[in-house]
Design a protein around this nucleic acid. Structure first.
Length: 442
RNA sequence: GUGGGCAUAGCUCAGUUGGUUAGAGCACCAGAUUGUGAUUCUGGGGGUCGCGGGUUCGAGUCCCGUUGCCCACCCCA
């Protein structure tokens, strides 16, 4: 093995050209689906003031308490204060909501539908389907409380997966967290209920009690399940408006044929969620069946100093999605054929001997200017035989051969690599000839 | 943060109870009478066996440490 020199940081990876075919397909599918529902792209900084995340996600959330990539701000060095550090964004919603506030949209154009696509960072122990740097596609819709918008967001998420080839097994699981006051009352009720029985519960539940009481509800340890049986329900404290919203949301999903599975164990880990929470699952994937998650966050914009503005959105991580696609043998080859084709040259220009290298270089340049692409050639002094071999290996559709005779006559030999047939043509006619062949074979 | 597994050629891996110059396939490079590739044949380059200690006459093989990777838990995308 080569001497150990440098390697990509833990939990990161190089996205090599061959890997990018799938990733780029996900990106363009995401864009197409988002745009089709009237969402526009927004790009926010990769890092933000640390405060932005501690405020929105919650101090006790796992993300904030142990998974943030934080760096000190040089300007603030030696000074006290909460502006003294920056954090690489662990999720997209906080930054987008901040941009919404800073952009003054609440006053000038409150209804905004945005999508984003880019890297997120979490300082976690890497494992299958989880990395420290990962790509996320997300959408956020601000400015409307209508449950129709919640349903549209869910629909968009499902359409994204459908466009990638996921089938009818796609499942929409939904629940509600109530309004923030409902949520607060429910949290207190749960704490009162669980506190006396903590001793009897598993170690995980004991730590979850502090971080996120809601999590005790979906512990799988049999003993804990029994102890949770009589736990207070959100329904008992759910406000009328939030309850109506939830019912209307369910109805809206049914109207568009997205039959929801109501699952009260869906408790998103971030503090900002209110009312609607949902996940899209693909059950046959087993332990990693959750493909995306999202929900409503009506208090977030206000939390960042903006006028009270509702919002709803979701995010999907590409790491798990790519993994799922590979397991299911997706996407169909024809969906990525064009991206694969980009990696294969159309024409390889070969020199018979060193004397023609200059002519080959010039002809390659000419062909490119005439619209043929990709056009490649050898730079390593390879023999004609080796050039043909390389052309074949690279998947080139054609090889153009230039020898002393062709250079003298201003012609070239055009070899169809698949058919193994050759024709001699004037160099001036090559581009046109190739173009007509490519069109007729397509 | 907790637990488990694995580190031998660019890649995927062999390597027997520790024993002579560490192997295969694929990949790569070059040839097979001199202007032609996908098949075939021949040859070639490339490894201080992750790193550091220890046991031993002798360690890729056993022991300890260390680093990295993978998998699971926690949690999440």
């Amino acid at each position: 093995m080569a001497k150990a020199t440098f390697q990509a940081p833990r939990g990161t990876r190089d996205m090599l050209p061959e890997d990018l075919v799938l990733t780029r397909h996900l990106e363009r599918t995401a864009r197409a689906v988002a745009v089709s529902s009237g969402f526009a792209e927004i790009r926010t900084p990769f890092f933000e003031e640390t405060r932005l995340f501690t405020r929105s996600l919650g101090e006790t959330s796992d993300v904030v308490s142990k998974e943030m990539f934080t760096v000190p701000s040089r300007a603030a060095e030696g000074k006290k204060g909460s502006r003294s550090s920056y954090t690489f964004r662990p999720e997209g919603t906080a930054g987008v909501a901040r941009a919404y506030v800073n952009g003054g949209y609440a006053a000038k154009a409150p209804l905004q539908k945005w999508y984003y696509l880019g890297p997120m960072f979490r300082y976690e122990r890497p494992q299958k389907g989880r990395e420290r740097q990962f790509t996320q596609f997300g959408i956020e819709a601000f400015g409307a409380t209508s449950p129709l918008l919640d349903a549209e967001v869910v629909d968009l998420a499902v359409r994204f997966f459908e466009a990638l080839g996921f089938g009818s097994e796609l499942e929409v699981r939904v629940s509600t967290m109530g309004d923030s006051s409902d949520r607060d009352r429910w949290r207190e009720a749960l704490r009162d209920y669980f506190c006396p029985q903590l001793e009897e519960r598993c170690a995980d539940c004991q730590s979850r009690f502090e971080r996120n009481v809601f999590r005790l509800l979906d512990c799988k340890v049999p003993r804990c399940v029994d102890l949770s049986a009589e736990a207070p329900q959100l329904a008992a404290v759910l406000g009328e408006e939030a309850a109506d919203h939830h019912e209307a949301f369910l109805a809206a999903l049914r109207v568009i044929g997205r039959e929801p599975v109501v699952d009260s164990s869906i408790v998103r880990g971030l503090d900002y969620y209110t009312r609607t929470v949902f996940e899209v699952h693909y059950p046959s994937l087993g332990a990693r069946s959750a493909l995306c998650g999202g929900g409503r966050y009506d208090g977030l914009v206000e939390e960042f100093g903006g006028a009270p503005t509702p919002g709803v959105g979701f995010a999907v991580g590409f790491t798990a999605t790519e993994l799922a696609l590979k397991e299911l043998g997706l996407p169909p080859q024809e969906h990525v054929a064009d991206l694969e084709a980009e990696r294969c040259p159309c024409v390889f220009v070969a020199a018979v001997s060193d004397a023609e290298r200059g002519s080959v270089f010039a002809l390659a340049s000419r062909l490119r200017r005439e619209g043929v692409h990709p056009v490649v050639l050898d730079y390593r002094g390879k023999s004609l035989k080796a050039q043909l071999k390389e052309a074949s290996k690279s998947g080139a559709a054609y090889t153009v051969v230039l020898g002393a005779n062709e250079v003298a006559a201003g012609t070239a030999v055009l070899r169809d690599m698949a058919a193994g047939e050759e024709v001699a043509l004037p160099q001036a006619e090559l581009a046109e000839h190739i173009a007509s062949q490519v069109i007729s074979s397509a």
